[in-house]
């Protein structure tokens, strides 16, 4: 055979080989993209099999950065601003200026139907940084109204260092307890978030929701499981807040592994009241019930320092 003919043959065979390789490569790239879509579809299928209504959940969530911050001290200016307000009696522990306990000289009556906006409208003249907190809800067991601090419009859920807690007595706000996170920093790199369907699936997988449930609201905020020392830096992970049937609220970390976070509102309030040093007659029972884990952790620290 001629060299020229051999070359033609080679060109043909390599052409075929290249086409084959190219096709292989493209399928491989597609596969991985499809994988994620697949995961979403199968989770959605599973949920629809159980008749869990997910029609109201957001479709897709763009990447979001983790944030970190530490509890801020209330400064002289803060106090001046407070003192300039009429009708407040601020009590700041100078040893521990990172929490604020304010008594109102004139209690503010609130109505049964008042929502967060209405409550804040009535109370805003007595609160500093009032626009940095968003409404969480009323707790009748402890007679408090909870507001959580926001960062870039995302709420930092259940953090003792970013809390505005109104104390209610006989339907009137008599005072409040406030802590604030300062120096909130955003991580430079954004993280892929767990997609909404997957987050709901995690709830289902953990047995937190069952058939016929409806997801009525779903929004991303921040949460930290580690609250540590009151002056340490805390890291907050993007966290899904998922409302089921307009009543049950669940949290699922929006990190890629997506894990269900257990939050106990009553325990949280009891702890906050304790660290604020606020004693209320109706809390005596609860305070006793949390005594045990408290003393255990105290012992822990002791052990570490032996």
């Amino acid at each position: 055979m001629q060299w020229g003919q051999i070359k033609t043959l080679f060109i043909l065979s390599f052409l075929i080989l290249d086409l084959f390789l190219l096709q292989q490569f493209l399928t491989k790239t597609d596969d991985t993209e499809l994988e994620q879509l697949d995961e979403n579809t199968s989770a959605a299928e599973q949920l629809s099999l159980e008749n869990i209504d997910i029609s109201d959940i957001p479709e897709e969530q763009p990447p979001m950065a983790f944030i970190n911050g530490r509890r801020a001290d209330f400064t002289e200016e803060d106090l001046k601003a407070l003192e300039a307000m009429e009708g407040v009696d601020p009590q700041l522990d100078t040893q521990n200026p990172n929490s604020l306990y304010v008594k109102l000289k004139e209690p503010i009556p609130i109505g049964e139907e008042d929502d967060g906006e209405a409550i804040m409208a009535k109370a805003e003249d007595y609160v500093i940084y009032d626009d940095q907190y968003s409404y969480w809800g009323k707790n009748d067991e402890h007679d408090v109204i909870l507001f959580f601090q926001k960062s870039n419009n995302s709420t930092i859920y259940f953090n003792e260092s970013g809390l505005l807690m109104f104390l209610v007595e006989n339907g009137e706000i008599t005072g409040y307890y406030q802590t604030r996170l300062g120096d909130i920093e955003k991580e430079s790199e954004k993280s892929e978030l767990l997609q909404p369907v997957q987050a709901v699936y995690q709830l289902y997988d953990n047995g937190e929701i069952s058939s016929e449930d409806k997801i009525t609201d779903m929004i991303v905020g921040y949460h930290s499981q580690i609250q540590g020392d009151s002056n340490g830096i805390q890291v907050f992970a993007p966290t899904w807040k998922i409302t089921v049937n307009n009543e049950d609220i669940h949290f699922v970390t929006a990190t890629t592994e997506g894990r269900v976070v257990e939050v106990n509102e009553n325990e949280f309030i009891t702890k906050a009241l304790q660290s604020a040093g606020i004693e209320r007659t109706q809390d005596v029972n609860q305070a006793e019930s949390v005594q045990e884990p408290e003393s255990e952790s105290a012992q822990e620290t002791e052990n570490n320092n032996e």
């Binding site: 949460h223 930290s224 580690i226 540590g228 340490g232 890291v235 970390t253």
Partner: peptide, 8 residues
């Protein structure tokens, strides 16, 4: 202390 959102 070294901490992130779920470990310390």
């Amino acid at each position: 202390s070294f901490s992130d959102y779920d470990s310390e």
